Amino acid sequence: MSREVSVGEVASLLRDRGPALVLTGAGLSTESGIPDYRGPDGQRRVTPMSHQEFCATSAARQRYWARSFIGWQRFSVAEPNAGHRAVAELQRVGAIGTVITQNVDGLHQDAGTRDVIELHGSLADVECLTCGERTDRDLVQAFMDDANPGFASLALGLVGDGSRVSSQIRPDGDIVLADDAVQTFVPPRCLVCGDDTLKPDVVFFGGSVPKPRVEQCFALTEAAPVLVVLGSSLKVMSGYRFVRRAAAHGIPVVVVTLGPTRGDAETTHRIDAPLGVTLTALARELAARLG
């Protein structure tokens, strides 16, 4: 059962038993302006497009890419926040090792963290579901920009009453945009096979993480002296399974996030607080002890 602890207690645990394995979630990126899917109560605020829906029809892919085209303009300029920088510092002083992230924003790497496993992939890459061709997202964005002159201005011009487009992006770079605003949008097509089956190289809701990646993360979990969870409600089994595996092996589980989590029963050390300031304090204390 989880026990509320101080930053000092977590620092002592990591000093004595580190380097810890880290699992991060969308809550770590909220201070960079990327909202998570759930509020502090753990309830989902928005429902993202599912893998099944995306793959089912061209209309669904058109809708996704129109919304993502607008969302990417905000998402791609997001910068690491204090929490990301603190994780990089904790790794630098040896308190933590590998970072498994459920996020697809690349902000851990931008902050200088190494040895990052992107559990759900990365929005920076695009793959063709038909032929397997891989493309850089910035190139796909440039194609959509050329093929849809004026679309960004049209969509953003509807912000006024708040009913057609939302300025809030989601953790997957999507944005709220009404269907009638995307009917003229020209979605990207694969430059190799010509199909409209381009998909960001991320695991959508309802999709599956590649088995070798899951097995790698299970192996890391079983070998870890401590598992530290940052900014995740653990509502999705994709991340929660590693907490369950750690608990089953008697490995301490530290959770730093706002609000309750699905893994509270398996958590041994808990800090319910904002991540940026908390992780900065933790990094400062461990730098003093280990640096």
Rank of each mutant, 00 (worst) to 15 (best):
R15V: 06
I34P: 10
D136S: 09
S58G: 12
D41M: 13
D105Q: 12
A78K: 12
T30Q: 08
V7G: 03
P40D: 07
N148V: 14
R61T: 03
S122D: 04
A59I: 09
A82P: 00
C128V: 14
E127Q: 15
E89D: 13
A56K: 14
L119D: 03
A66Q: 04
A95K: 05
I117A: 07
Q62W: 02
L129Q: 15
D115H: 09
Y37C: 13
L28M: 10
A155I: 07
L90Q: 04
R17Q: 12
T47N: 14
A147T: 08
E9C: 12
D138I: 11
Y64E: 06
V126N: 07
R137A: 15
N103Q: 02
A26P: 04
S76V: 15
V10K: 08
F54R: 12
R44D: 02
G132Y: 13
G83L: 03
G132H: 14
R17N: 06
Q52N: 10
A88P: 01
D110H: 10
R61L: 03
Q102G: 11
I100H: 06
R17V: 01
D125F: 10
R38I: 09
A78T: 07
A78H: 09
I117M: 05
R137H: 13
S29L: 09
E89F: 00
C55W: 09
A66T: 08
S32W: 00
C131E: 11
D115W: 07
R38E: 07
V99I: 12
E79P: 03
T57L: 10
L107C: 11
P149N: 13
A147D: 07
V99H: 00
C55Q: 05
S32I: 02
S50W: 04
H120P: 04
I70D: 01
Y37H: 11
A78I: 04
Q62E: 08
A78M: 12
D138L: 14
L21N: 14
I34N: 12
R63C: 02
A95Q: 08
A111H: 06
G33H: 05
E127I: 05
S29D: 08
A26I: 04
G8W: 01
D36L: 00
F143I: 09
P149A: 09
